[in-house]
């Protein structure tokens, strides 16, 4: 029996070592972004993928957005990052049309690996909603699998997807806006908004309590995207909650969703609700200028 157990253990070690090798083979830039800090920040932003629209010119500012992020994880991410912020640092909280309907438990509307699972890799277990040890192991195994496929597999097996370039930019944005707005409406109507209001309130309170400055932000969207949401829908699912928060906390709020300098200019967008590089620079200049105007940014 001893011999059998010895062989099983030896074999298991071999597998574990292979896993560790694959695990260390490639780091995850999204996780690295949260775990690697060269200095203390004067300004950061949280939020979902729309948070990527902000471009910082120097290393005093940094983006900490995550695709499909919920307000619950904005709160947890802030708690995790707060020690890396200077006194009086500004924390920009981009809130999207769908933010109040998001559910910290739900992962099926986007690739789960791109969302909650990564939080297992850097947030403490107490910050993970419904933490599960089993899922934690699964996340690490998925990382091994992902690394393997990205290193070896792509060369042999995966065929590059052909991109349909026959559409004009306007047509592409319109097509994208139709698709995205439907998904975003489903997301916005999925969960209890009051719960997300509580998370956002807790986040603002925490930021203020720590001597940092919260700024609420609605990102610029292309007109193609905005036109898919009626005023009534936006009031019901978005503005009533935003207004409630702003009234309660009197925090600065900047709304660029229908800013004509950006939303009517298709060439600034990579798709209907995300800016391209040119758009990011253009928008960030406007944003920082406005922050200076309202005297929350000094220089």
């Amino acid at each position: 029996m001893r011999n059998f157990i010895f062989k099983v253990i030896l074999f298991s070690i071999l597998i574990v070592v292979s896993f560790l090798y694959l695990y260390s083979k490639r780091s995850n830039p999204l996780v690295d972004n949260f775990t690697t800090h060269n200095n203390n920040y004067e300004i950061i932003n949280l939020g979902n993928s729309h948070g990527a629209n902000i471009k910082y010119r120097d290393n005093k500012g940094k983006r900490f957005q995550r695709a499909g992020n919920t307000l619950y994880y904005d709160l947890q991410n802030y708690k995790y990052l707060q020690e890396h912020l200077v006194d009086n640092a500004m924390v920009i909280i981009p809130v999207s049309y769908f933010s109040f309907g998001l559910d910290e438990n739900r992962t099926d509307y986007i690739d789960p690996n791109a969302f909650v699972n990564y939080y297992y890799m850097f947030l403490p277990s107490s910050s993970i909603y419904n933490y599960s040890f089993k899922k934690n192991i699964q996340v690490y195994l998925n990382k091994v699998k992902e690394n393997y496929h990205s290193v070896i597999d792509e060369r042999f097996f995966l065929v590059e997807k052909k991109v349909n370039d026959s559409l004009s930019l306007e047509e592409k944005l319109e097509h994208h806006a139709k698709m995205r707005s439907e998904t975003h409406k489903i997301m916005a109507e999925y969960s209890d908004p009051e719960k997300n209001v509580i998370y956002l309130s807790a986040l603002i309170e925490d930021i203020i309590k720590n001597g940092h400055q919260p700024v609420l932000l609605t990102m610029p969207y292309a007109d193609h995207y905005n036109s898919k949401f009626s005023e009534a829908w936006l009031d019901e699912h978005y503005y009533q909650y935003m207004n409630k928060i702003i009234d309660t906390y009197q925090v600065p709020y900047l709304n660029y969703s229908v800013d004509e300098r950006i939303s009517t200019n298709d060439s600034l967008f990579s798709n209907s609700d995300h800016l391209n590089d040119k758009g990011r620079i253009y928008f960030s200049d406007i944003l920082f200028e406005d922050l200076r105007k309202i005297q929350v940014l000094n220089q």
Partner: peptide, 14 residues
């Protein structure tokens, strides 16, 4: 034999 079992195990995971 061990290489074969190792390969099968890795294939199962990956």
């Amino acid at each position: 034999r061990w290489s074969f079992y190792y390969a099968i195990t890795m294939i199962i995971f990956l």
